[in-house]
Structures are given as structure tokens and as C-alpha cells.
Design a protein around this nucleic acid. Sequence first.
DNA 1: CTAATCAGTACTGTATTAGTTCTATTTGTG
DNA 2: CACAAATAGAACTAATACAGTACTGATTAG
Lengths: 158, 158
Amino acid sequence: MIRITREADYGIVLMTCLARVDGQPRSAATLAQQRHLPLPMVGKILKALARAGLLNSQRGAQGGYGLARPAAEISAADIIGALEGPLAITECSTDMHDGCSRQDHCEVSSHWPRINQAIYAALQSISLEEMSHPDPPRPLHFHPSQRTATAGIAGRPV
Amino acid sequence: MIRITREADYGIVLMTCLARVDGQPRSAATLAQQRHLPLPMVGKILKALARAGLLNSQRGAQGGYGLARPAAEISAADIIGALEGPLAITECSTDMHDGCSRQDHCEVSSHWPRINQAIYAALQSISLEEMSHPDPPRPLHFHPSQRTATAGIAGRPV
DNA sequence: CTAATCAGTACTGTATTAGTTCTATTTGTG
DNA sequence: CACAAATAGAACTAATACAGTACTGATTAG
């Protein structure tokens, strides 16, 4: 459930790469080669991240991309938000839900903002610095037993 | 960012309807009419929710669907999980990522479980009972100022 | 000057989603 | 008992979104 696009997936991978070299710029080609990702895709994603202000870009020969801020000040929410647009799970949850044809009978309009908030807070709490370290240092003791109740229903994880 | 399908959206709407009548069964047709949702869609969703054990179904004349458990014991994660399959944002985050062709160069495989956990915990923390009340009683003091930084990048909220 | 590199846009095949339709099965009611 | 109301389940279709590519232009180090 809850799909994140592959763009965001690659985006996080690339950001962690840049976080690990600590501010030093890397070219799109270098990163693509390092991670074995398709170069055009990598280029597209880095451009978007730079537009969003998460990366500094240097044009020309010997140019490349580097983190615009320390890794600790960049969250998963920032990266995903930059690549997929603002947090909005359904159309109704955007600020302008004028176009919602069922608005009159919806009445439940309050539940999506609530869910959005929860997810956003969760993503905001994960920093790029944390994600750059291979070993997860936060225990958090999550019980997977709870999800096995629903896990068997649809084998399709997408 | 982070899209949830309309099926899950409708699913929550329908579940809140059933939560508000407190266990009393309602037919798919009744619910569809009440919320002005397409009947075939409603039928499909209710069937899935019943299969997942979240609803009891009664066949035949005067039949219908009712909550299988108290609303307080049903979470947003349960509903969404029942309609979209288990929590898995990317392919890599399922237990079997044998097919991941980039596994050797991935190295970041640890970040998706972490994000999945955070989102799952967030959804698990929201009960159907909470969602059934029109006024959100939990303050949670979310600061939207943080997201406006990325909000303007892509106007497409989907 | 020129090669390397980023910036931006437009395009395409494929997969997913949203929604429909049809048939079978169950069960209350006259 | 027959019929109508309702769920169960699967198969199908049109529209949309995604993943990835291609191309043109702008910038800059050497």
C-alpha cells in the first residue's frame, strides 16, 4: 500500500550518495555509474532536487551537484516532496478542494488532513543523515506481527 | 506525494459511515446512495473489506455489511492495507527482494524499511473511531510552514 | 574554442487505476 | 416453494500515471 514513485526512491539513493561524500560535488554521470542507475533518469531527478533547493548545482566542465544543506537538516519528506509535489494523498486533501464534486456529501473531509499530517510528520522525522548510515541506530521496536493480519490478503505488494 | 488509491479513499469513507451507525448493517446500495459513490465500486470495496475480516457480511434479502470489531479497534492502516495489500512502498521493501537487479549496488536497502515503519506506525495510530468524528480532537500542532518550502515546486498534487 | 556538464521540455511504451459487467450463491418473505 | 434482494467473485475496458528516453539550449573550465 502507499506507493512512492521510483523517482523518489532513486532520489533518496542519490541523496545518500551525496551525503556520504560530505558536500563535495559529484556529476550526474558519476552518480549514475556508481549506483548503476539509468543516466537520463538520474539527470532528471538531480535537476528537480536542485530546483527544490536541496542541491547546489555547478554547470560547465567539472561541474556537478552537492548538498545545499547539511544532511542532518534534510528530511525524507523534503526529498520526496521535491520529487512528487506537495503532500497530498487524495485530491480532496489539497487546500483547494473546490473541484470536489462530492463535497456536499463528503463530510469526512476531516480525515485526510489528519492522515496526511501523520505521514508527513513521520517522513519529516527521518533525516538524510540517518538514512546515510547503513546501520539503523534507532530501535523503535516495531512489531511486524500486527501487519501480518492483513499481509496475506493481497499478494501484490505494489 | 505519496498516493493512496481512490479505492482506499472510498474505503475509509464507507467505514466511517458504518462506524457512525454503530454496528448496524447497511447494504452496499444504501451506502452508495448515501455518499453518492458509484455502486459497483462500493460493492467491490465492501467485498474486499469483508474478505479482510474488517466487516461482517450478511447475504440475502435484508442483508448488508457491519463492522466486525469496534471502531476504536480498527486503524487506518487496517483499512488501507486491506484494499491495497501489505505495506510496501517500493519493491525492495518487501521481504523477498531477490528480484532486485541492483541489489549488489543498492547498499541503501536499510532506508526503506525505516520509512515504511514510520508511515505504518503513523497510520496505525489513527483509529476509525477518531476518523468518524467530524472534529479532530487531537491537536498535534503540525507546522505547515515547513512544507511550504517544497509546496510550490510542482503544482500537481497527485 | 571546445568539451563537459547542467537546464528544460516534449515524447513514448507500459503498468496501474477506476470503474463496469456478468454470473453464481445465499437468504428472507409472500 | 418461488422470487426478489443482496453478497461473492472474476473478467473486462478505458483512462491515467509512471518510467524512461531524446533533444535542444545554456554555462563554464581549460
